[in-house]
Amino acid sequence: MYQRKRRRPVSDINVVPYIDVMLVLLIIFMVTAPLITAGVNVDLPKAKANPLAEDSKPPVIVSVTKDYEYFVTDGNQKEGPISPQELAVIVGAHIEVEPERPVMVEGDRTVDYDAVVSLMVLLQAQGVGSVGLMTDPVEE
């Protein structure tokens, strides 16, 4: 009579599909990472200033570019270019929801002082209590 040979079970794990998935995810993250950190290109003035406290909420950033375009950045969500009145309404809505949230103005160094002050007046009219001005640190 013919006897069957017993096969031993294979105890190796095939990891090739996992490596393929990891390589695809790596490529996806490499492509999307620069898109997430993209912001508004503003040449900030240099000044010595204290940074925001680490335990404070992330600020709503209002930007004025050298071409007098206005943007609102809330975390990773960027809106713009929009009119100053639309910008003030959007920021006012953010402040209504979270009154303790800081608002920072990021004005290009070549923009007239009048444009930044006008923007701050619009924000104040929408109920923003205090506005911070963003700067680049001075290199010593």
Rank of each mutant, 00 (worst) to 15 (best):
Y2K: 11
Q3T: 05
R6S: 04
R7Y: 07
V10K: 13
V10F: 05
D12T: 15
N14P: 03
V15R: 15
D20H: 06
D20M: 11
L23C: 14
V24L: 15
V24H: 07
L25G: 08
T32D: 02
T32A: 08
T37A: 10
A38T: 10
A38N: 13
G39C: 08
L44W: 04
A47W: 02
K48P: 00
P51K: 08
E54G: 15
D55H: 06
P58I: 07
V60C: 02
V62T: 05
V64P: 00
T65Q: 07
Y68V: 12
D74F: 05
D74Y: 04
G75C: 11
I82K: 08
P84C: 09
P84Y: 06
V89C: 01
V89N: 09
G92E: 10
H94E: 12
E96F: 02
E96L: 05
E98Y: 10
P99E: 04
P99S: 10
P99V: 05
P102C: 08
V103H: 01
E106N: 13
D108V: 01
T110M: 11
V111A: 14
L119W: 01
L122W: 02
L122G: 03
L123A: 07
V128S: 00
G129P: 00
G132P: 01
L133H: 01
M134C: 02
E139A: 12
